[in-house]
Simulated scan of single mutants.
Amino acid sequence: MLALVGCSNAPERTRIEAGSVETSASGGLKAAIGIAAGSRLVPVLDTDCHLPCSTTQVIRPASADQQEIAFWLYQGTGSELVDATPLGTYRVSWAEQSERPSQIEVTFTAEPDGIFLHAKGQPNGGALPVTRDAP
């Protein structure tokens, strides 16, 4: 489950490789950053999102045994993945945490110097590692 819940400025972040921060004449992103959902691109940072911009997605682990989540990230201006540029697969893990978080907050941020991911577990708010799979 993904739910848009707000903004965050996170100190421990992972740069999204190959993500472009090209801006339009109005100062917003030229192309959305989104998550793959089947053959569709579900934006998390919309086209024309004015920099800096940020959004947080809340994910609840599906089972007590789940130890990570993975995001297949793309950048594009349409709603179809076939027209989007793949940015990589990113994983958030809580396998090394002393207790299983009840929910994970993943923040996507676009700034003039890059696009970033940050994750934290709730209820304690501790940062969780975000890694990129090798291409």
Rank of each mutant, 00 (worst) to 15 (best):
M1Y: 07
M1E: 15
L2K: 08
A3P: 02
A3N: 10
L4K: 11
V5D: 12
C7Y: 15
C7N: 11
S8G: 10
S8E: 12
N9K: 10
P11V: 10
E12H: 06
R13V: 15
R15V: 08
E17G: 00
S20T: 08
E22Y: 11
E22F: 10
A25L: 13
S26Y: 10
G27K: 07
G27P: 01
G27Q: 01
L29C: 08
L29V: 08
K30D: 09
K30H: 12
K30Y: 10
I33F: 04
G34M: 05
I35T: 01
I35R: 05
A36R: 14
A36I: 11
A37Y: 14
S39F: 10
R40P: 04
L41Y: 05
V42R: 06
V42Q: 08
P43W: 01
P43D: 06
V44G: 03
L45M: 05
T47E: 13
H50C: 07
L51V: 07
L51D: 02
L51P: 03
T55F: 08
T56G: 01
T56V: 12
Q57W: 11
Q57N: 09
Q57V: 14
R60E: 13
R60S: 06
R60C: 08
P61I: 09
P61Q: 12
A62V: 13
A64T: 15
D65F: 11
D65N: 15
D65V: 09
Q66N: 11
Q67G: 12
E68K: 09
F71W: 14
W72C: 05
L73P: 05
Y74F: 14
Q75H: 05
G76S: 02
T77S: 13
T77F: 03
D83M: 08
P86H: 07
L87D: 02
G88C: 04
Y90S: 04
S93Q: 09
S93T: 15
Q97H: 00
Q97A: 15
Q97I: 03
S98Q: 12
S98P: 14
S102K: 10
Q103Y: 06
I104H: 00
I104W: 00
E105T: 01
V106G: 01
V106I: 12
V106H: 01
T109Y: 05
E111P: 03
P112I: 03
P112L: 10
P112A: 14
D113A: 10
G114P: 13
G114C: 11
I115G: 04
F116M: 03
L117K: 05
L117G: 03
L117M: 06
L117S: 08
H118C: 04
H118Y: 07
A119E: 06
A119Y: 06
G121L: 02
Q122D: 11
P123M: 07
G125D: 00
G126S: 01
A127D: 12
P129I: 05
P129M: 04
P129S: 04
V130G: 01
T131V: 15
T131I: 12
T131K: 02
T131D: 01
R132F: 02
D133Q: 14
D133P: 02
D133S: 13
A134H: 13
A134T: 14
